[in-house]
């Protein structure tokens, strides 16, 4: 699953895809982020931007400053120096996101799609069936029992891909086919083995299970937590979903409207990767 050394694929004359593994799990993604950090640290002047993704990263570069051959060789050397061992600790914020599961906005969006495609099973029931969960309450419990790892950001400003850290909380779901034309801003949804939160009203393909009134993207940077960036999450953050009632939902919504809303962010935490992997292995063992 993890390649011995990175595989390089040219994306035209100004981008390189660097593939670390062929699969999607925490270890592969962690190595992606560590290698990206090391490449950034190396301060290669020709590199214009880097997109860390789940099992790969993209390097955008100026080919008139450094050739494809030289740059891939350099990244290969950095990889060899960093290695594929998974240990150590890194700073990792823990952000709590209030979620109203199966709320009226989510239901309305699902009904809208099912009106056009009547053969589509409503999202919560489809996800329950795909994961042997008896009912919506057990889906909510499983989804909110774990911390999630912000594995990547992309597709749309602030859109995050979240991997559950507790192996017993794994939930999988197929994506919509065809995709939805609209998704409510703040929708919480599952596709493949990932959860995402929609930062804005956009098309989408993940199965909807709930909705958060707490913005994860603020283009105007009006709210306190967005003073440095319009996007809330950074790769390597952790997220926990906190089920809330519609009353609490309305309270948060009012604070957002007033401009006084502050996210619940614990930013003094350190994430011990090797201890996490030990715990995760023990949890997986128990699940079997």
């Amino acid at each position: 699953m993890l390649h011995d050394s990175p595989k390089f694929y040219p994306g035209g004359d100004r981008a390189i895809e660097v593939e670390i593994g062929d699969g999607m799990d925490f270890t592969v993604n962690f190595i992606v982020h560590r290698l990206v950090a090391a490449v950034r640290e190396a301060g290669i002047a020709a590199i214009e931007d880097i997109i860390p993704e789940l099992a790969s990263f993209q390097v955008n570069y100026d080919p008139d400053r450094m050739t494809y051959e030289d740059l891939t060789a350099e990244i290969g050397r950095i990889h060899a120096a960093v290695g594929s061992g998974v240990q150590g600790s890194l700073p990792s914020r823990l952000i709590s996101i209030p979620v109203a599961y199966f709320d009226p906005q989510t239901t309305k969006c699902i009904d809208d799609y099912c009106g056009t495609y009547p053969e589509k099973q409503p999202d919560p029931e489809l996800v329950c069936a795909a994961n042997d969960l008896p009912d919506r309450a057990s889906l909510m419990r499983r989804h909110s029992q774990t911390e999630y790892w912000v594995a990547a950001l992309g597709f749309w400003p602030g859109l995050c891909s979240l991997l559950p850290l507790d192996p017993q909380a794994r939930i999988v779901a197929p994506k919509y086919n065809p995709p939805r034309t609209w998704t409510p801003k703040g929708a919480v949804a599952i596709g493949g083995a990932l959860t995402c939160i929609y930062p804005d009203r956009t098309p989408g393909g993940y199965q909807l299970i709930g909705h958060t009134p707490a913005p994860i993207y603020d283009g105007t940077q009006r709210l306190f937590d967005f003073r440095d960036s319009p996007a809330l999450f950074k790769a390597g953050d952790r997220v926990r979903f906190v089920p809330v009632t519609l009353e609490e939902y309305a309270h948060v919504e009012a604070n957002v409207a007033e401009g006084t809303f502050r996210h619940d962010i614990v930013d003094y935490q350190v994430f011990a990767v090797d201890r996490y992997l030990e715990w995760s292995a023990a949890r997986s063992g128990k699940a079997k």
Partner: peptide, 15 residues
């Protein structure tokens, strides 16, 4: 993990 359609791949950067 890549997804079910032949054109699906694990999410990656788009050049």
């Amino acid at each position: 993990a890549h997804g079910s359609h032949p054109s699906n791949i694990i999410d990656h950067g788009y050049p």
